[in-house]
Design a protein around this nucleic acid. Structure first.
Ligand SMILES: [Mn+2]
Ligand SMILES: [Mn+2]
Ligand SMILES: [Zn+2]
Ligand SMILES: [Zn+2]
Lengths: 141, 141
DNA sequence: AGTGAGATTTAGAATAATTCCAATAAACTA
DNA sequence: TAGTTTATTGGAATTATTCTAAATCTCACT
């Protein structure tokens, strides 16, 4: 059973190509680091993880790569409070749960139809192409 | 018919007092400016509007007042993308619609029960005390 | 009314995250 | 392989916000 929720490493170079962008070791590594530990890291955290494998990479490049991955829609940028942007490789539509006691962020699967249901509250004249749902609270564990 | 969705100017000093804080001309004015034009201004925008009436106020004070109003829960801080925090005096539970073509933000009323319905998707062990819903798209007008 | 304690405001310095820039390097194309 | 375009890099610049320390204000108490 293959995971359709995220692009696989092999498919990244294809996705990049489809956008007229090149596959580079930096882009591949940044993406792999996001896939490996899905804790919604900041750019700085991605930088630290990536540097362990590619010590010469620069922070500017990490920002560039993340931006590129977001443009290609293989990664989502998440902002739920002032503070560094966080990055998420989960391609499946999902909500975010921000645990206020630990500071950690969890993905919450959405039951089919929920997004449409939520979109249906929009008055006439509002045409939405994306819905973001953010929970805040405390999670067991 | 009184508007129960936002605190009235008179009630602010009471709300402040309940939190052990003082009512000051700066706090009152910052709050009134938010009530007067509900376009989710940034701190800088609030500063500009407030300065028109109180030319000696400082930006630091505007930040301080906004922070105070958020603590007292008479104002909501809104962050849906990297970029300056925006401030909203609508106390009623509501969603935000971010119009990508104009950059403007609209409040969307929530039908009763919707928040509970959305909260009900949370798996066991997740205890949420707030839900935020953000739409992105284009609005007529 | 006068005094002192604590709260608030203020200007400017400091910080954090991100973006910009101009030079180098790498990748693709012909 | 030469030429062209795209990507990476380190450092400077920018933006939004927070911090700091001094001045001012408010309130409670006399
Ligand atoms: Mn970051
Ligand atoms: Mn601002
Ligand atoms: Zn996520
Ligand atoms: Zn609002």
């Amino acid at each position: 059973m293959s995971d359709t929720s995220t692009a696989t490493p092999e498919s990244l170079s294809q996705t990049l190509a489809e956008s007229g962008l090149r596959s580079t070791p930096q882009r591949e590594l940044v993406f792999n680091v996001l896939l490996k530990k899905r804790d919604h890291p900041t750019a700085d955290e991605v930088f630290a993880r990536v540097k362990a494998e590619m010590p010469t990479i620069s922070l500017a490049t990490v920002y560039n790569c993340l931006e590129t991955l977001v443009q290609c829609r293989v990664v989502r940028a998440v902002n739920f409070e002032r503070g560094p942007t966080r990055y998420c490789p989960n391609q499946k539509p999902h909500a975010h749960f921000h645990d206020e006691s630990t500071g950690s962020t969890h993905d919450i699967d959405l039951p089919p139809g929920l997004l449409d249901q939520v979109k249906s509250i929009l008055p006439d004249g509002y045409d939405s192409n994306s819905v973001e749902i953010i929970f805040r609270g405390k999670a067991k564990d």
